[in-house]
Computed example of a mutant assay.
Amino acid sequence: MSLAAQSVPRMPRGVRLHEDRVRGGWVLLAPERAIALDQIGHAILSRIDGTRDFGAITRDLAESFGAPIEDVARDSGEFIEALAERRILEVGP
């Protein structure tokens, strides 16, 4: 899978971001799974709302972190694709 700029990632029913106040930090909760997130993972997932396309998410991340958009697109695309392969995220046209 290769994400196009117009692809729209979304969290399926039952998947959500959760702040773990006990341990500090964020986790991605999915049925029978919990994935601890680093700052980058949280930054990417917090921008996924089911309406913004990958291009908009990438531009926002690049502007927020002052990083080259090509690097952000590659890295965030790989992250989103890995979660989609595990059926934790969905990616639509």
Rank of each mutant, 00 (worst) to 15 (best):
R52W: 09
R13E: 13
E78C: 00
L17M: 08
A56H: 08
I57E: 05
D20M: 01
S2R: 10
R74Y: 14
S76K: 01
D60S: 13
V91G: 07
D60P: 00
E85K: 10
M1N: 04
H42D: 07
P9V: 05
P93Y: 02
E90D: 11
D75N: 08
P68A: 15
R52C: 01
Q6K: 10
S46L: 00
I88A: 06
G41A: 03
E90G: 04
P31C: 13
P31M: 15
R16S: 14
E78N: 12
I69E: 13
M11W: 04
L61M: 06
A56N: 03
S46E: 11
Q6N: 11
L83T: 00
I48H: 08
S7A: 15
L17I: 10
R13F: 08
L29T: 06
M1T: 07
R13P: 00
Q39I: 03
L61A: 06
D49C: 05
P93G: 08
P9S: 09
F65W: 12
E85M: 03
F65T: 06
R23I: 00
E81K: 03
A73I: 06
W26Y: 12
L29M: 14
I48W: 10
G50F: 13
V27F: 01
G24K: 07
L61S: 08
G66S: 01
A5Q: 05
D75A: 09
P68D: 15
A34R: 14
A67P: 02
I69R: 12
R33T: 04
R74H: 15
V22N: 05
V22I: 09
G24P: 02
A36R: 14
A30M: 02
R74C: 08
A84V: 04
F65C: 02
A56L: 11
D49M: 06
G14Q: 13
